[in-house]
Amino acid sequence: MKQFIDFLPLIIFFVVAKMDPREVSLAGQTFELGGIISATAILIVTSIIVYGLLWYRQKSLEKSQMFTIAAVIILGGMTVLFRDETFLKWKAPLVNWAFAVVFLASQFIGSKPLIERMLSHAMTLPKPVWYKVNTSWAVFFLLLGAANWFAAFMVPGDFWVDFKVFGNLGLTLVFTVVQFMFLGRYLQEDAQTTGKETE
């Protein structure tokens, strides 16, 4: 459910971006609806609403969510202000590369890699495995950022819009499934150990 909420502004962005531009009237004002610029404005508004509601409900946001909303407001705002989609095209590569840096840096800063801090409440893994999983997430975000950059700047047309929504989601789901397949052996061992302790 949480992942869907995070992707909701992107889905709305995709729908509006694919619409043919048209003028609509709202509260006595005329606005353009359809195309990248108006879709970006709606992305900013829906992101503020979604993350605002999450913050109101949880009294906090995850650091990744705060970084994402900041990138949407800054780069999306520049896209709308200058009517240039180049700024928004940089959002996905920069956000993914920032995540890659954070995951990698966590292996050298503090006592635990980031993935262990995030998931140690749910599973127990040997220390070397935590580092392998953490490194794999860093590499994944590095490659995902590169794929977003390629889709945005090397492929003509608005393919980057499709990739931004469905490519990111699809690749993340596939990678997550592969991760759980890799971790399956350790999860089974952890479950067996827990079962013996309760006997």
Rank of each mutant, 00 (worst) to 15 (best):
K2P: 00
F4Q: 03
I5N: 05
D6K: 10
I11R: 01
I12V: 11
I12A: 03
F13M: 09
F14R: 01
F14K: 00
F14M: 09
A17C: 04
M19Q: 06
D20T: 12
P21F: 08
V24P: 03
S25D: 13
S25G: 14
A27S: 03
T30S: 08
T30D: 01
E32F: 00
E32C: 06
L33K: 10
L33V: 12
L33S: 05
L33D: 06
G35N: 07
S38G: 07
A39C: 13
A41C: 05
I42G: 02
V45D: 01
T46C: 06
I49M: 10
L54S: 07
W55F: 15
W55H: 10
K59E: 12
K59V: 05
L61V: 00
K63N: 10
K63C: 03
S64P: 03
Q65C: 01
M66C: 09
T68A: 11
A70V: 09
G76K: 02
G76I: 00
F82A: 07
F82Y: 14
R83F: 10
R83W: 08
D84Y: 00
D84W: 00
E85W: 03
T86K: 15
T86V: 08
F87N: 00
L88M: 13
L88C: 02
K89G: 05
K89C: 02
K89R: 15
K91W: 02
P93H: 02
A98M: 14
A100V: 13
V101Y: 00
A105P: 04
S106C: 04
S106V: 12
Q107V: 02
F108T: 06
F108I: 10
G110W: 09
I115Y: 07
E116C: 08
M118L: 15
L119S: 04
H121N: 14
H121D: 12
H121F: 13
K127D: 15
K127H: 12
Y131L: 05
K132G: 07
V133S: 09
F140V: 11
F140P: 12
F140M: 08
F141A: 04
F141N: 12
F141R: 10
F141D: 09
L142E: 03
L144E: 14
G145D: 10
A146Y: 15
A146G: 15
A146L: 14
A146M: 07
A147F: 13
W149K: 02
M154N: 11
V155K: 13
P156M: 08
V161D: 04
D162A: 03
F163Q: 01
F166I: 02
G170E: 00
T172D: 00
F175A: 14
T176C: 09
T176R: 06
Q179D: 09
F180V: 08
M181K: 07
M181Y: 07
D190P: 06
Q192V: 15
T193V: 11
T193L: 15
T194R: 14
K196Q: 07
K196V: 09
T198N: 11
E199V: 13
